[in-house]
Design a protein around this nucleic acid. Structure first.
Lengths: 215, 215, 215, 215
DNA sequence: TATGAATGAGTATTCATTCAT
DNA sequence: AATGAATGAATACTCATTCAT
């Protein structure tokens, strides 16, 4: 309605400064996952993020808080995505397991897949990160799988079973593959065919969970 | 003539030449497993071994070689013990799996059980340790389980299956429990009933491996 | 509006990128020459250069490379200056010797004059510094003096003489004075009148080199 | 006179324990001369003397006192020998100089010849050693040469000359040769023909000291 | 006496953090 | 905002010295 054109203002932030924190976190994730917290130099993080050492401190008060940001920011979106996917799903419990497995396959080679190993490695030095992970990842995972198992039992797909006893069997092999890929596997000639392994795993699971013939 | 007993002198130190190296390795294992290589101070290792900083250097030329010693010396005896046990065994393949599982249960709370996590965590910084572990632990484990699976198939206990695809499922859950216990589990309220978990795992395995009815 | 001047802040430090390396080398030279390589603490070097320990490492990767820089950087310019001076000179060989002697007199109380003693002292620990000095200082010195002697013979100032046999006599007394001044002489009451000594030396040389009357 | 044989007693000392201190000093001299005081480890000295670290401390309260012993014990006998030799001599002053020169030639490759360089190098850290050397070696050397020069003048061999101005010229070249041989010379290809150098030096000296024709 | 294991003060070096530019 | 020079606390490692044997 006014004829005066809006004053050409320098925007309060630039694309740069907006993207920075995440670029730093991404660079840090790679290095922390590769070398661990203590062995990672902030200078290397800065270089990997194409900025200078001092700039890191404009966004994170210190190395520890950067570490926490790495774990917290990168993890939750993924957890939530899978939760949502499952919540929206209507098919069989077996299909739900297959869905999760296929998610695993998609994530296994990304940065994020380095976090579990990182959390494992640093839980002695960052107990609250360990707790955070136990609650926000493992705990939610437990609830997720418990729901799937219960659904399977209700639908007659699975025989009844105590979820807390089965969970490590359910998740362990996939977690194993993820961590192997981001640690020893990088330096050894031993190769696992991830897809085949996970398919075999799901197959074995489903056979092992089949209801007793007489029940 | 005097009744006063000779003063009980506590010598500042005593010679332990033979025992020392292992005492140091043991102390180091605890700390490395807890904090990682970089975050562990040699002074703390020394204190934990009830000796002084300098003494560590009488037995190990530097921190890295102590680290290597920790992984190499503590691991092999355990691997060999299990191998021997299986080699001597004459029963069913199922029993062999149960034996290994029970070994797991016995080891899970000892120092040694911290090593896998340690190796995982440091494989980026010590590639040759990663390779060593891949060959001497994972590789030998693969051969061991492959033998057991083959025996199971031959005896009609298991249906035929590609061992390399099954292995992570076989080992993953147990490895998971071991690492959980030595990392996140220490700082979280989440508890798994290790024995029940492993029994459930073996049970599911055996069900899942049952030969097809019609085969 | 306020009369109070802005507070005069003394910054904790200022950027000196360009000047730093030389300041450090200068400080190091003084201390190395006084105490030797091993007995000189980098912290003292830093303090002498009015910087902190860490700053030294911004410019030199370690103590040894600082040591090498001290010897190499400080020495060559002086050698080259004298060479140039002689090259430019047109007069008698005797005058050339006098010129060199007068250069000695000017340098003897500066930092640089501490280097020969330092190189002598450390040649066992730094063989390649010894070689460097042998080639770049002694070797060039030999060529320089050889040229002067030959010129003297050609001009009829000197009797013929084998330069390599005469050189220590030519240089020794001056070198002696330099090193004395930077070592024992500092802690003893014995004093030599440097100028008189060198004049006497040159005088004796010229007399001793006079052509045989009958030749 | 007595028939009872003398009791077979264990001697209060053994050859070993008597020789030890000197063996240690000799080993120490070699190493100190080669590496300097700070860079020489007592363990190396012990090894070179074929004893153990602890044994050194039975004879010397600490490293410094060993260092002082090295300089003091090894030097004085040599100085005194030369003094005595000159005192006993009756011939010309020129012969005296030749005698000293020939002594130099004999000593130059022995351990002792490393001491001057050592004293030079360490005078900053051991001022009292510097003083000791200045007095007991340089001072006595000055008196010795002064006497020789005076004698030469009295006998008409030399023209009158101020000894303190001539001394560095007299001694410098020989000192030079000694120190070169024990430092840079060890690591360079440059070789001096010691004998020829010293003969040339003496020759030049005698020519340069010849009385003026008209005097 | 002699040994060499043990000690711990002392130093080189690293790197998170600060701050002048 | 961004930089990277400067800082100094922290830590691996050394080695003179002590002392149980």
């Amino acid at each position: 309605m006014s004829d005066t054109p809006p004053p050409v203002r320098t925007p309060r932030w630039t694309r740069r400064s907006d993207a920075r924190p995440h670029e730093i976190v991404a660079a840090a994730l790679t290095l922390f996952a590769e070398r661990g917290f203590a062995a990672t130099k902030l200078e290397d993080v800065a270089r990997a993020a194409h900025i200078s050492k001092g700039t890191v401190y404009l966004y994170f008060p210190n190395k520890e808080s950067l570490f926490r940001a790495v774990v917290r920011q990168e993890l939750l979106p993924n957890v939530e995505r899978i939760e949502a996917m499952i919540a929206a799903h209507q098919g069989s419990a077996a299909d739900m397991l297959r869905m999760i497995a296929s998610q695993m396959l998609q994530v296994i080679d990304t940065q994020v897949a380095g976090i579990p190993k990182l959390v494992l490695a640093e839980s002695g030095n960052f107990p609250e990160i360990a707790r955070f992970y136990a609650e926000e990842v493992v705990g939610r995972g437990i609830r997720l799988f418990t729901r799937i198992l219960r659904r399977g039992v209700e639908r007659g797909e699975f025989r009844p079973i105590e979820p807390m006893h089965l969970l490590p069997t359910l998740v362990g092999p996939m977690a194993m593959m993820v961590m192997w890929r981001h640690s020893i596997g990088r330096h050894s000639d031993l190769r696992f065919d991830t897809r085949a392994v996970i398919e075999t795993h799901i197959d074995l699971l489903l056979r092992g969970l089949r209801p007793e013939p007489g029940a």
